[in-house]
């Protein structure tokens, strides 16, 4: 028998599972607008975790000059052949530009033309220098008050009684420690799921895929197991990507030309 795992208990107002784009920004919002305590549990390190780990070169959901949020709702609705929640699309689209402006205030470089206008790429996109998007967001989180970050802690299960969440349990990847976190509210902000299907590349290079290979569906799985209602898993996401010709291993991750 190995040594038993040590259990640490944390009590907080809010637990955020996953310190990617959504999780970090939620923490920042809570810190700016309340006195609530927040813990973020992240299985990597928030500085370079989630879909923005390697950066992104454009804001692909943006209300460009002359357009309104409803245009975005109509576009996404048509693209998904109607299987969308327009209330969710509209409430998100109404905030696209405001959150972008906030990121710019935090230090993100948004490219401008000679008139000082955003450089657009199509009807819904603007160009940015986004290699350091995630470090900028992570720095703001680190500097904010009442936010504590547990890096390298992987949450596996939600604590739910009578259809109400009371916290979650996970473990450290580096130490033989289990975290039992009790919270007044829990936000799941983990990634989607890559690696369910056989990838394009074999062996050592199998993780060279379009979507981050570290996004393994943990957040979906913990919800499914806790009895949360889930929607539209049959709408799978496929992408058209640069074909990787394998000569020797290289640490690449995301090589998308065009996506759907």
């Amino acid at each position: 028998m190995r040594d038993k795992l040590q259990v640490k208990r944390i009590d907080t107002d809010v637990l955020i599972i996953g310190g990617g784009t959504a999780g970090c920004y939620a923490a920042l919002t809570i810190s700016r607008n309340s006195n609530l305590s927040v813990w973020i549990a992240e299985k990597a390190n928030i500085r370079r975790s989630g879909c923005l780990a390697a950066g992104v070169n454009a804001i692909n959901a943006y209300i460009t000059k002359g357009r309104v949020p409803q245009d975005y709702v109509d576009y996404a609705t048509k693209d998904a052949a109607g299987i969308v929640r327009r209330d969710l699309l509209l409430t998100a689209a109404e905030r696209f530009n405001e959150v972008t402006a906030d990121m710019e205030r935090l230090g993100l470089v948004i490219l401008k033309d000679e008139n000082g206008d955003d450089v657009t790429r199509g009807n819904r996109n603007i160009k940015i220098n986004g290699e350091n998007f995630k470090p900028i967001l992570a720095r703001a989180v680190t500097e904010a008050e009442r936010i504590s970050v547990l890096n390298h802690v992987n949450i596996t299960d939600l604590l739910v009684v009578d259809n109400r969440v009371y916290g979650a349990v996970g473990f450290s990847i580096r130490e033989e420690t289990v975290y039992e976190i009790h919270a007044g509210a829990v936000l799941v902000a983990t990634g989607g799921a890559a690696g369910l299907y056989k990838p394009n590349n074999p062996g050592f290079s199998r993780h060279k895929m379009w979507y981050p290979p570290f996004n393994t569906g943990a957040g979906y799985a913990m919800g499914i197991q806790a009895g949360a209602e889930m929607t539209t898993f049959e709408m799978r996401s496929l992408h058209c990507a640069v074909r990787i010709r394998l000569h020797r291993p290289e640490p690449s991750r995301r090589e998308s030309v065009q996506s759907r």
Binding site: R85, A92, V188, T190, G219, A228
Partner: peptide, 22 residues
């Protein structure tokens, strides 16, 4: 009291980075 945002939240396709922030 369990919330979801970003890639794990359903019903809101093509949200991308700004949608996750929102």
């Amino acid at each position: 009291r369990l919330y979801a945002a970003g890639d794990v939240a359903g019903g809101c396709p093509q949200k991308y980075v700004t949608g996750a922030l929102a």
